[in-house]
Design a protein around this nucleic acid. Structure first.
Lengths: 230, 230
DNA sequence: GGATGTGAAGTAGTTCACAGCC
DNA sequence: GGCTGTGAACTACTTCACATCC
């Protein structure tokens, strides 16, 4: 747990590390104590070389001839991604999506800690979701590291403005709307319909292949005849 | 709408086109009839040159000295992304997330058409969501172009197997689980917690900046003192 | 033997700078 | 004048191939 400096990693690597993390944990829960770059690569949909290059960036944590010790690997990835710190997260907009995120056991993990829920709807304000009382988004907003926006698109910019004014410097925006924020504020977009469009594009164009790019677009070209038939 | 061949576009371009599309529509709804590459770039968080390079790939649709006619632009992007076709979509797993997606007015757009909802929970099967009766995922599954997976992670692989066996060749997977599918099946992952981790990484490392990459990670470094203060 | 880590080569995507057209 | 479209330069990432070490 040596407190290390930020460590600047290539952007695609940052996007893949959480994937390796998930795979390694899965592997561990199945009783393995080590994993090698081809296994990681097959699962993640990238080449073994890419995996090694990514991991080499975190320091020399592999064992030649034997692969990576899962425990060591997980520690180093967590540290590289800054997960030895905790992040205060608020969710704004408690509709179906906000509720799904707040209650999910896999969303707020690795240092992310839910500290507040906000909504504008009076019929929701005051109710309890995921053990938090939903508060009025027009009232005082607690300081947090990250705000998750799950509000209707029309409201997104106004809410973002409020959050920024309340001192929040990172937004995860689920509203299908481009946001304008001042310098120094990070916005990360997740847009379901865009993901779907990327997929359908590949359907007519690339045709099923789409190996490559793990990120949010992994196509895993693993053999596997599926199920019992053919 | 000249029926054109697939048109192979660079992957990052494919991810940005839907963003331009959204921006252009926004612009249009505010009364503009044309837009130029810097305006698109500012909004999308990329350089004007990148926008021009992306759009030049669709054919020569700009007007020198004047920018892009919004109507023309939207037509060409829609065609390039294959949106002049329709896609039959099923949603599997009707929890909070599945419900949110089914009811969203911005998810199933541009050719995507909801044709079925499936779940394994008996208390949900038979109920009506988004004007569709939820059917048993263990029963017959209608043929569709794309399946959207919103099931718990433990169930994801088994459900994916069923869907593939039912002839579905494209999956949009919201379950935080890596899936193994046979060659020829496309999987596109959307993982909320990974998005959050990428954002928090930038928080400690890059520090607020993160210009670049529109994709799902746009940081828009637009000036804008926010709200009325300052 | 076997799998890592890494120079060197290759590929993909972005940015520069400017010619071309409205 | 202004903004597009694009060859050329550059930068970033991936892949190859192999020396290195357990």
């Amino acid at each position: 747990m040596s407190r290390r400096r930020p460590l600047r990693l290539p952007e695609p690597t940052v996007a893949r590390l959480p994937v390796y993390q998930r795979i390694a944990e899965n592997w561990r829960s199945r009783g393995h104590s080590s994993i090698d770059s081809s296994q990681l690569g097959d699962q993640a949909g990238v080449t073994a070389t890419t995996v090694r290059r990514d991991l080499a960036g975190l320091g020399s944590l592999g064992v030649r001839g034997a692969g990576y010790d899962i425990e060591t690997l997980l520690n180093h990835i967590a540290e590289a991604l800054g997960q030895d710190r905790t992040y205060r997260v608020v969710i704004v907009g408690v509709g179906n999506l906000g509720r799904a995120l707040a209650n999910s056991t896999s969303f707020l993990v690795r240092g992310a800690e839910l500290v507040g829920l906000y909504d504008a709807d009076l019929s929701v304000i005051g109710s309890t979701v995921a053990r938090h009382v939903v508060r009025d988004v027009h009232g005082e907003i607690d300081l947090a590291d990250v705000a998750v926006l799950c509000v209707p698109p029309e409201a997104a910019q106004a809410v973002a403005d409020r959050l920024v004014r309340a001192g929040i410097r990172a937004l995860l925006n689920f509203a299908p709307r481009v946001l304008t924020v001042p310098q120094g504020v990070a916005v990360h977009y997740v847009d379901f319909s865009i993901e779907l469009q990327i997929l359908t594009y590949h359907l007519v164009s690339g045709m099923g292949l789409l190996g490559g790019g793990v990120l949010h677009s992994v196509g895993i070209p693993n053999e596997r005849p599926v199920g019992g038939d053919a």
